[in-house]
């Protein structure tokens, strides 16, 4: 059976993806992600091995033990407001990157911006000079 340390779990996609027997399920609404662990009887520890946060441990099977569910509010993008990630995942990104990579050239904390807005910013940055040039040319 699997025990989850709720202080460590990031609410990521790993364990629910690697479990071969659908014993870990994920549900997602626009605001909330929940992960649910069934009382698992398999002799398998794929989820334990592949948890990035080492939040899972194998424990002896116990019928009386309740099945845990953890729910995570999804963080809203600083720019467009769409909900795009769990807070522990974003904090984890912060702790895995050196400080100088966490701000872009304009000082933006891009980690707290959703991937769609990140692509838009990149496109704006790349085309800026060009657009200036072209608008000057037009009558």
């Amino acid at each position: 059976m699997i025990k989850v340390d709720e202080k460590k779990c990031l609410g990521c996609f790993s364990c629910s993806n690697v479990c071969p027997s659908q014993n870990i399920t994920r549900t997602e609404t626009p605001e909330l992600r929940s992960v649910h662990w069934k009382r698992c009887k398999e002799e398998c520890d794929l989820c334990v091995e592949f948890c990035p946060a080492k939040a899972l441990t194998l424990v002896p099977y116990d019928e009386s033990c309740p099945e845990p569910t953890l729910s995570f509010d999804l963080v809203a993008c600083k720019i467009c407001g769409s909900r795009y990630a769990t807070e522990p995942m974003l904090k984890r990104i912060e702790s895995s990157l050196p400080a100088n990579l966490q701000k872009d050239s304009t000082g933006l904390d891009w980690i707290w911006v959703c991937p769609v807005c990140r692509r838009n910013i990149e496109a704006e940055r790349a085309t800026k000079q060009m657009v200036l040039g072209r608008s000057r040319k037009s009558p």
Binding site: C12, P52, M89, I93, V116, R118, R119, E122
Partner: peptide
Amino acid sequence: TGCGLCRLACPFGVVWT
């Protein structure tokens, strides 16, 4: 494993999971 961390770690939003 498809955890989704890389998607959040790319400054340009060009990894998909």
